[in-house]
Design a binder for these strands. Structure first.
Lengths: 329, 329
DNA sequence: ATTATTTTCGCAAACGTTTGAAGCAAATTT
DNA sequence: AAATTTGCTTCAAACGTTTGCGAAAATAAT
């Protein structure tokens, strides 16, 4: 039974509850003899401290909230994975919440976080929401809030982002180094700030003198990326390289390339921004600039720890990228 | 501030705590007038009930534990996603735990579940653990336990599994219908019961008279599946079909097929057991027998609800499969 | 006007911990 | 021998709710 409480132990042993409590946490006040007795009984009775009682008494919970748009997304998975690892190390548990890019679910989730008195919250900024009020409520409740990946523009929030600009530049440079002249570049939804950043620095870093043709397209879904790619490679003047801003886009593009029997890197080169799991599915493996959800998670957690230690400053941190060659360029 | 409590509201309004509590939950004892007052003040003070206090008092938590080997796995993701959706609908939250196939992390996680007094636990049986003692502890604590996907052999646990046998048979029949005669069939780790079930019914359902050659192989990882496939397709007598027991295996097999330029379905057919996300990456899309983590999750949650409603019976439920044609056979 | 009934509310205990302060022996110092 | 210290233990309050029960006030029935 898990209905073993301090009280029960104390009654069996004929000592007070407080003594039991202190004995269990190895308090110096308690004699070795009683400590031993208590520990042993607690063991045989399979005592487990009641977390809710502890939380209530100490006004702290060893609990983090973590809200993602969707859990069925490799990027967020690896983020979650990183947070979970670190959380467990430090004795915290994770409350996972999905917003499904749905504003109502989002405020519902945030309410849950407040009710559960989470010690901190990692959240993604669902772009359908231009309503930060619900987030401000958690801030007002003194819950450290860290936005990751998709973050609001406002400056008064902690943010951990991928080094989008840097990554886009690395991809652009890799393409130029290979002397690509006719590039299909597929980006995500226009309204995402992440798209804007990547798009800007990508285009900007092309050397005008080398006048490569850049075909900029936007796809908000895998299948749209597939269509776009199909279209471009059915033309006579086929691109000699494809740049994909994300895994979702890469998946679509690759499907069309496979369909048309385009050989990589013979007929065309491919490079993507990705965390790597998708690029490694293909042969040759697709070159990618790593945008690691895992590293993002590690950094976010680090920032959270600092916040928990009383750091009230507002930071915006970036996770560095690196180019992973894959034989596709 | 989230430090608004019933007490505070009661003081401001000059009424008792219990009245406030009852007013907030629309108790018939309370007059409409005071209800209105209370509701309004609670609103402006942004009152949120303290979940830990509620839990302590009611001895219930609106919290489920969910332990998976790893969160970076599309199958488990869709499972998690399903559970999360249903949980939120019913006002529950989700504690996510990763075991990483590590027995120590597993017992640690189970302890966390007990300490947090979760109302129920969904768990995967990490095959490295032949130690069910930790699970028995949560059962002893009267926490409904539902194993999913990988489950122990013992009969005294609730289990929700994929209809492995059925699925394997469907795949075998699909292969025979296409008259495949030289089949490479790659299965997962031998020690997994899931492998045993799939392997048995797969082989058994082949019609002996048609004497198709079956090459049974085992791969516990993607890269091993890749190697095996490479090996078989470098022979003169190439298989005319590949069967992959899981997504991990499919990914490896496909990589080698791409590498060798084997055309699908021209040179060889491919079929897999999968939840579908991976097969849809390729062109043509790979035929698969659906083993949906999402449906598994929905069913597991249904079972959990029953348990919570006092159903003490032990069930073993199966999620039905269906064949999804994909142009790869 | 008295009793009975309903409506509305408050008291107080309980859930299982933690923790400052106080109690009380025995041991040590003056 | 009195005073102080030390070592161990207990008391009691508090965290924020929920809830059975009783009480007062308002309404209805006699």
């Amino acid at each position: 039974m898990s209905d073993t409480t301090l009280k029960k132990i104390s009654q069996v042993l004929g000592i007070s509850i407080s003594t039991v409590s202190r004995a269990l946490k190895d308090h110096p006040d308690i004699s070795a003899a009683t400590k031993k007795k208590v520990l042993e009984l607690a063991d045989t009775l399979e005592y487990e401290p009641n977390a809710t009682a502890v939380n209530l008494r100490t006004k702290k919970t060893k609990l983090f909230g973590l809200m993602v748009p969707s859990v069925t997304n490799m990027f967020y998975d690896s983020f979650i994975s990183a947070i979970e690892e670190e959380s467990r190390k430090t004795g915290y548990s994770l409350l996972i919440l999905q917003s499904n890019d749905n504003p109502e679910a989002e405020v519902e989730n945030l309410k849950l976080c407040r009710q559960n008195r989470v010690s901190g919250l990692f959240a993604c900024y669902s772009f359908e929401t231009n309503n930060l009020a619900a987030f401000d409520k958690v801030k007002a409740a003194d819950i450290p809030l860290i936005f990751f990946d998709k973050v609001p523009d406002q400056t008064d929030y902690n943010k951990i982002c991928l080094a989008d600009k840097e990554a886009a530049v690395m991809a652009a440079e890799a393409l130029q180094k290979k002397n690509k002249k006719n590039i299909l570049a597929i980006f995500g939804s226009r309204q995402l700030s992440i798209t804007k950043r990547r798009l800007e620095s990508f285009t900007a870093s092309f050397d005008k003198k080398k006048n490569a043709a850049l075909h900029i397209e936007h796809a908000h879904s895998t299948s749209l990326a597939e269509d776009i790619t199909l279209q471009y490679f059915q033309k006579l003047d086929k691109p000699d390289a494809v740049f994909c801003m994300s895994d979702e886009i890469l998946m679509g593009a690759m499907k069309s390339l496979m369909r048309l029997g385009i050989s990589i890197p013979g007929d065309t080169g491919v490079i993507a921004l990705s965390d790597g799991s998708i690029p490694k599915l293909y042969y040759p493996e697709i070159a990618f600039v790593e945008t690691s959800g895992y590293n993002l998670g590690k950094l976010a957690f680090k920032r959270m720890s600092e916040c928990l230690n009383g750091d009230k400053e507002i930071h915006e941190d970036l996770v560095p990228s690196r180019l992973v060659e894959g034989g596709s360029l």
